[in-house]
Simulated assay, not measured.
Amino acid sequence: MANPLQTPHSGYHGYGINTRFFEGWYYRVTLPDCGDTFAFMYSIDDRTGGKPDSGGAAQILGPDDGYLCRTFPKVNQFWASRTSLALGHWGKTDLKISPQYLDSATFDRHIQEGYQATATWNQGKIRDWHSPSNSYCRWQYEIKPIYGWGNPGNVQQSTAGWLSYFQIFEPGWQVLMAHGLATGWIDWHGKRYEFTNAPAYIEKNWGQSFPQKWFWINCNSFDNQPNLALTAGGGRRGVLWWMESVAMIGIHYEGKFYEFVPWNSEISWQIQPWGNWAIQARNSQYEVELVGTTDRAGTFVRTPTQEGLIFICRDTTYGKLTIELRCRRLAMPSQFYGKSKTILKAFTSLAGLEVGGNKG
């Protein structure tokens, strides 16, 4: 395997599927020096074409929760690997070849609009032709993976467990890279951001529908904790012919993976429609508490639905978040019985916080 941290589900799932189907990818890079974040969201819907919602899109959540979106209606200009994380979509181009990965210089010269992304590279350019200011973004940066999803050195794990190999849950979800380091540049409306070894993150989802309602927390840029990455999420999702409410927390810290999932932990959560996120979990060895808040209005981004891409997902990348991870007394030597031991307590004001669903 070219990438030893490659996770399950890294390849594109949509080949050979003729029914309604979407797949989406999320690339994030955080710039601690200036306190800004860029989140790149790529999606392809009904790739076989000929349906009302067939097509792709690239959305960007930028500084000050700014937003930019460009659609790519030609599904035959999308490409993706079946076996690894690699995809792209061309918009305007003078090339007459089939869509494929290009070296960065060739892409920059011949692709007027579009993107290409892998486990180690993210590049593209889009423009909002309808905005009075002709808002645009150009970007290219390389990525060095640090954590996939699981303990380093071990086979990487499915975020939703082994059942995610079957079309049981809607949608499928996979953290592709919990933490990495990005080096490159982003040109946002004429302002150029250059960065070296900035925290980076990648995930994806796929299926025929999104959850009825969901929440999500993510950060790998904590104060004075360069080797800490957190992803948590939950919601009401489809399971075969019924619905269930589930949640999970995954933490990579100092080379170790702490996983709190329904099959090994008790998890509870209190999520307000907007502004406050609280999640608690514990298993036989560890317990964790997350508290996220924001006083920002956030930004609505588009999400695939049965009605196509619509604004039912609300995000900010400036969330305040505290995390406390403790070792439970039952898992420690007898001299510690009667109290838990704090492994980690950390804070950030650069967390990704999200709620979504039928009521936003």
Rank of each mutant, 00 (worst) to 15 (best):
T7I: 03
F22C: 08
P171E: 02
S131K: 00
Y67R: 09
R20T: 02
N122R: 06
D187R: 04
K125L: 03
T317C: 11
F38Y: 09
G11N: 08
G24T: 15
T106K: 08
G298S: 13
A86W: 00
N220T: 13
T231E: 11
G184W: 00
F78G: 00
G255W: 02
M1H: 09
Q77W: 05
W25Q: 09
V155W: 01
W242F: 06
T231I: 08
F72L: 12
W185C: 15
G11Y: 00
T322G: 13
I111A: 03
K341F: 09
K320Y: 07
L344A: 12
P8S: 09
G66K: 05
C137Y: 00
G62P: 07
Q272T: 15
H252M: 12
I17M: 04
I17L: 08
S81Q: 00
I126W: 02
P262W: 03
F22T: 14
Q140P: 02
N276M: 09
Q272D: 06
P333A: 04
K341V: 15
D103G: 12
I186Y: 07
E23K: 04
Q156W: 06
T120M: 06
F21A: 11
Y42I: 10
F166C: 15
D36Q: 06
N220V: 14
T30E: 05
P199I: 11
S349F: 05
I251Q: 09
Q208F: 07
G298C: 09
I249Q: 03
D64P: 00
I202A: 12
Q335D: 01
L87C: 06
K125V: 08
R82I: 02
N151L: 02
E287R: 11
T19P: 04
Q212Y: 12
N283Q: 11
I146L: 03
W188H: 07
T231G: 15
S10R: 05
G114F: 09
F195T: 09
K345R: 01
K96C: 07
T48C: 13
H130P: 02
L350I: 01
H110K: 01
A247D: 08
W214V: 13
W269S: 03
A232I: 12
S98E: 14
I146Y: 02
Q306V: 13
R82C: 04
S104V: 14
T342V: 06
L68H: 07
S164R: 00
F40S: 07
M41S: 10
A331R: 04
Y286G: 00
N151F: 03
N358I: 02
G180T: 09
I251A: 11
A105G: 07
W242M: 01
V291S: 14
Q174V: 08
R237I: 15
E194L: 08
G180Y: 05
N18Q: 10
L330N: 05
A39I: 15
Q123W: 02
Y193E: 07
Q272M: 06
E113Q: 10
Q335M: 01
R28G: 13
G250L: 10
N197W: 03
K204L: 01
I186C: 08
H9W: 01
A39R: 06
P262R: 07
C219W: 08
I323G: 13
I249R: 01
I202M: 13
F300E: 12
V29Y: 07
